Amino acid sequence: MANKVALVTGASSGIGESTALKLKDLGYTVYGAARRVDRMQHLTQSGIKILAMDVTDDASMQAGIEAIIAEFGRIDVLVNNAGYGSYGAVEDVQMEEARAQFNVNVFGAVRLIQLALPHMRAQRSGTIVNITSMGGKIHTPLGAWYHGTKFALEAISDCLRMEVQPFGIDVVVIEPGGIRTEWTGIAADKLRETSGHGPYAVQANAMAESMVGEASVKRQSPPQIIADTIARAVTAARPKTRYAIGFGAKPMIFMRGMLSDRTFDGMMRMATGISKALKTQKA
C-alpha cells in the first residue's frame, strides 16, 4: 500500500480518526480532512497529513483534492465520513436546517466523489467508501431529515456503483449501528433544542434520553470496528457492496425487512421509550 493514497473526511474524531489511523498502519499515505484542523494536530504524529476542509464549501474541497494530486498524482481511496445527525419533528425543523443536513451528509459527499472520480478513472482504479448508517435502511422517531440523507446516499451509492464499475472503481457502503462517538450526544442535544418543548416534547425528550441513556451507551460499539471494516473493504480484491456493522445494525436491518411498517413503528416506539412516555402523559 506504500504508493496508495487515501482521503478520509470527518477525521477529527470518532470513525474518521480511527479510519485514518488504521489506513496509515496499513501503509497508505493518508490525508485526514475536517473543518477544525486544531482537533487533528495529534494525527500528524502518526504521519497523517491533515487538510482543512468544509464539505459545504466547494472551494475547500477543490483545494483539498488539488493538493493531493499535486503531491502524489493519484487518489486511491475516498472515505466519505463527514456528517451529523439533525433530529427533530418534521413540523419543527426549519428548512434552513433541513438543507444544511442534506448539504453535509449528501451533497458534500457527492461533490467530493465528483472531484475524485476523474483521477480514479485516469488510473483505472479506486475505492469510494460512503458511510451511511443502519439509518439508511430503517427509521426512528423524530429522525426524518437524518434518515432522509442516509436513504439518499444509499441510493446514490447503488447508482454510482454501476456507473463506475467499467473503470475499475469500487463503491462500498458502510452501515454502522450504534457507535461510541460524539454523534449521539450532538444528535440528542439537537433534538431537545428543536422539539423538546411544544406538541412533540414528550416524544422528543423520551427519544433523546434513549439515545444518551446509560443502557444505550454501554451497548455501543467502539469506532475501531468500523475502521477495521473499512480496511477490509479497501484491501479486498472484490469487496462487498455493503457492510452492516456495529451494535444493532444487522438485527435491526433484518427486523425492518421482516416486519410490516406499522409493526416496526410500534417496536421503535417501545424501544425508544416513547410509548411509555405517551401513556404516562395520558394518565
Results as ranks from 00 to 15, higher is better:
Cys159Arg: 11
Met95Thr: 14
Gln165Val: 01
Ala6Tyr: 07
Gly135Ser: 11
Ala233Lys: 02
Ala187Tyr: 02
Arg219His: 10
Ala122Thr: 09
Pro166Glu: 14
Lys24Val: 10
Gln94Asp: 13
Glu209Ser: 05
Ile245Arg: 14
Thr132Ala: 15
Ser275Ile: 00
Val172Asn: 03
Ser125Ile: 04
His147Phe: 15
Gln224Pro: 12
Gln114Ile: 05
Phe72Lys: 13
Leu51Val: 08
Glu193Arg: 10
Lys282His: 13
Gln220Phe: 10
Ala187His: 03
Ala63Glu: 12
Gly136Gln: 04
Met268Pro: 01
Gly32Thr: 11
Gly196Trp: 03
Glu96Asp: 13
Ala116Arg: 00
Ile225Lys: 02
Val93Pro: 00
Met95Glu: 13
Val172Ala: 08
Gly126Leu: 04
Gly64Ala: 15
Ala188Leu: 04
Gly178Phe: 03
Ile65Ala: 03
Met252Ala: 13
Glu71Leu: 06
Ala116Pro: 03
Ser195Arg: 00
Gly85Phe: 09
Ser275Tyr: 11
Arg238Lys: 15
Gly248Gln: 09
Gly266Leu: 06
Ser195Lys: 01
Asp265Ala: 01
Ala271Trp: 11
Gly246Pro: 09
Ile156Cys: 06
Thr194Gln: 09
Gly177Lys: 01
Ala244Ile: 01
Lys137Ile: 11
Gln224Gly: 10
Lys137Arg: 12
Ala231Glu: 07
Thr149Gly: 14
Ala215Pro: 08
Ala144Ser: 15
Gly213Lys: 08
Ile131Thr: 03
Tyr84Trp: 12
Ala33Cys: 09
Gln281Ile: 10
Ser125Gln: 13
Met268Glu: 13
Ile138Phe: 06
Phe254Arg: 02
Pro141Thr: 03
Met252Tyr: 07
Val234Pro: 00
Leu115Ala: 03
Gly47Met: 04
Arg99Gln: 14
Tyr243Arg: 12
Arg161Ser: 13
Gln165Leu: 03
Lys4Phe: 08
Asn81Phe: 02
Ile68Pro: 00
Ser125His: 12
Ser46Trp: 06
Gly143Trp: 05
Asp76Lys: 07
Gly213Phe: 03
Arg192His: 06
Arg39Gly: 01
Ser46Asn: 12
Met134Leu: 12
Gln45Gly: 11
Met211Gln: 10
Ala20His: 02
Met53Tyr: 05
Gln45Tyr: 07
Leu51Asn: 01
His147Ser: 12
Asn105Gln: 04
Val79Cys: 09
Met211Ala: 06
Gly14Tyr: 03
Thr235Pro: 02
Gln41Val: 11
Leu153Val: 15
Gly108Phe: 01
Ile69Asn: 03
Lys276Gly: 04
Thr194Tyr: 02
Ala34Pro: 05
Gln220Thr: 05
Ile138Gln: 02
Val55Asp: 13
Val212Ala: 05
Lys4Cys: 10
Gly266Ala: 11
Thr181Phe: 07
Val5Arg: 04
Tyr146Asp: 10
Gly16Arg: 04
Arg121Cys: 00
Ala206Thr: 02
Glu66Cys: 06
Pro141Met: 07
Arg99Lys: 14
Leu23Trp: 04
